[in-house]
Amino acid sequence: MSMESEVAAQIYRLQELHNRFAAGEYEEMNALYSEDFQGTLYMPSSGTIETYNANQIREGNKEAAAYYKGQRFRFIFSGVTVIPQSENQAAVSYAITYINGAKVVRALSLETWRQEADGVWRMLRWHEEKGQ
């Protein structure tokens, strides 16, 4: 399987795992973040940029799973683009659409994924720009 296919498969698995928040699940998602993870999230509603390390993003996923448990919503990832940077690292971008009833939020995600020593592709860096 090509690097592009392997990384794209991880992105689509990440989408599935976001949708599993409704069942209170987050552990498998948390395994997809590198210990070296660094992330930023821009939320226009607050006008701030939030930063996350590996522990913080994992705790945020745990909280999200508790919040979304039992709710009906969907995360849809589209326009996935994978650009190899080296033999074990790739830049990835895609659009996210979050739908919960009448509420629709769109975002753009830019990520760096790295194949780590155990052969698993994990997210190393993440920057997301959310819409209102």
Rank of each mutant, 00 (worst) to 15 (best):
A31W: 07
L41P: 00
Q38G: 11
K69H: 09
P84H: 05
N55V: 10
G60P: 03
T40K: 14
N55K: 15
F37Q: 05
G60K: 14
L41Q: 13
Q56C: 00
F75E: 08
N55W: 08
P84T: 08
M43C: 13
E59L: 13
V82M: 08
T81P: 03
G60Y: 02
N61Q: 08
E59S: 11
N61W: 00
S78V: 04
I57C: 05
V82C: 04
K62E: 15
F75S: 03
F75L: 02
F75R: 05
F77S: 07
S34W: 07
I57Y: 03
Q71N: 08
F75T: 10
E50H: 07
Q71P: 00
V80K: 04
G70W: 00
E35A: 14
Y52A: 06
F77T: 04
A31I: 01
Q56G: 10
N61I: 03
Y42V: 14
I49W: 11
K62L: 11
E50F: 10
Q38C: 14
F37H: 03
P44S: 05
S78T: 10
Q71D: 06
F73V: 02
Q56D: 13
I83L: 11
K62G: 06
N53F: 11
T48Y: 12
F77P: 00
V82P: 04
K62S: 10
D36H: 08
V82Y: 01
G39T: 07
T40Y: 14
E35T: 11
T51M: 09
F73W: 07
N30E: 06
E63R: 14
Y42P: 02
T51D: 07
M43R: 15
A65P: 03
K62T: 09
G39S: 07
E50I: 09
V80P: 02
S46G: 11
V82F: 02
R72W: 09
T51R: 12
F75M: 09
F37K: 04
E50Y: 11
F73D: 01
L41I: 06
E50L: 13
Q71Y: 05
S86F: 00
Q38E: 15
N61S: 15
G60W: 03
T40P: 05
T51E: 12
F75W: 10
M43I: 15
D36P: 00
E59H: 10
P84W: 08
Q56W: 03
V80G: 02
Y68T: 01
G39L: 06
S46K: 06
A66C: 03
N55T: 13
